[in-house]
Design a protein around this nucleic acid. Structure first.
Length: 96
DNA sequence: CTTCTAACA
DNA sequence: TGTTAGCA
């Protein structure tokens, strides 16, 4: 398997902002509001993974649907939890 | 690059 | 409510 993890932290905030076509300040705001938690380098700078960028695009899609940031945070939290539970079921299937 | 604050839509 | 500009 080629170890190409989409969770690998690669982009600085300037590059990430360019890729998702959003201001850097907006990415920082999303993080402060709990929509996103990008990796932090030892120096304290944000490192966005491809998964993070996908998550930001999901945020924008929800916004177009009229959901505010608080609502989006709850949606993403439920999606995270759902995915985690699904993973546990999948693991239980393999072992049990 | 970081955080915070104040002004604006 | 969310974005932007400016400061430290």
């Amino acid at each position: 398997m080629s170890e190409v993890k989409s969770t690998r932290p690669v982009y600085g905030i300037a590059v990430a902002a360019e890729l998702v076509e959003l201001p850097e300040a907006t990415l920082r705001l999303y993080e402060r509001r709990g929509l996103l938690v990008p990796f932090r380098s030892p120096g304290g700078t944000r490192r966005y993974s491809d998964d993070d960028l996908v998550r930001v695009r999901r945020v924008e899609r929800l916004r177009e649907a009229g959901v505010n940031l608080v609502g989006i945070r709850r949606v993403l939290h439920l999606e995270d939890e759902n995915g985690r539970l699904r993973q546990e079921l999948d693991d239980a299937d393999q072992t049990g």
